[in-house]
């Protein structure tokens, strides 16, 4: 049901195709902030960060947790490649909470470990926020 308002959106991981739909509006968690996408957007290739993906279709809204990956928008087809995509009800609140504790306990000695800690913190926090 492709109308003049919608564009195709698919989310794939190495293990499965998570979502395949005609959407009206998508918000991507890009590496440097959120990007909103509507039909007719210019070709885009961007790196994704850890965060929330929101996909609006004509009659519903999908929310997914993304852990990095890439997004490509081309000819009104948005493809999101990610190594981990989960719906909020698939998230494990307790595991995320303990991950957050672990991430807090990480010691920072150099730039690499700082980045690792920030990533772990963000991953855990985003999961916690979405699990609620």
């Amino acid at each position: 049901m492709a109308s003049s308002e919608t564009f195709h959106c698919s989310v794939v991981t190495p293990e499965r195709a998570v979502l395949e739909c005609e959407s009206t509006f998508v918000v991507l968690p890009a590496w440097d902030g959120e990007i909103g996408i509507l039909r007719g957007r210019a070709p885009l290739l961007c790196k994704l960060g850890i965060g929330r993906l929101r996909i609006e279709t004509a009659d519903e809204e999908h929310i997914l947790f993304l852990d990095g990956g890439f997004a490509e928008m081309l000819d009104n087809r948005l493809t999101i490649l990610t190594e981990d995509a989960r719906r909020p009800d698939e998230l494990d609140r307790q595991a995320a909470a303990s991950d957050l504790e672990e991430a807090r306990a990480l010691t920072v000695t150099d730039d690499a470990s700082l980045e690792a800690r920030q990533k772990a913190l963000q991953r855990a926090r985003t999961q916690l926020r979405l699990a609620d």
Binding site: P14, A30, W31, D32, A42, P43, L44, L45, C46, K47, F70, L74, L81, E83
Partner: peptide, 26 residues
């Protein structure tokens, strides 16, 4: 295709190549 790249292509590649290795092993 004239893509809009974010970040620039070189940096994107740096991220993509490890992903290719991971998927190849998988």
């Amino acid at each position: 295709v004239q893509y809009e790249f974010s970040p620039d292509p070189h940096e994107l590649l740096n991220e993509l190549l490890p992903a290719t290795v991971r998927i190849a092993l998988f």
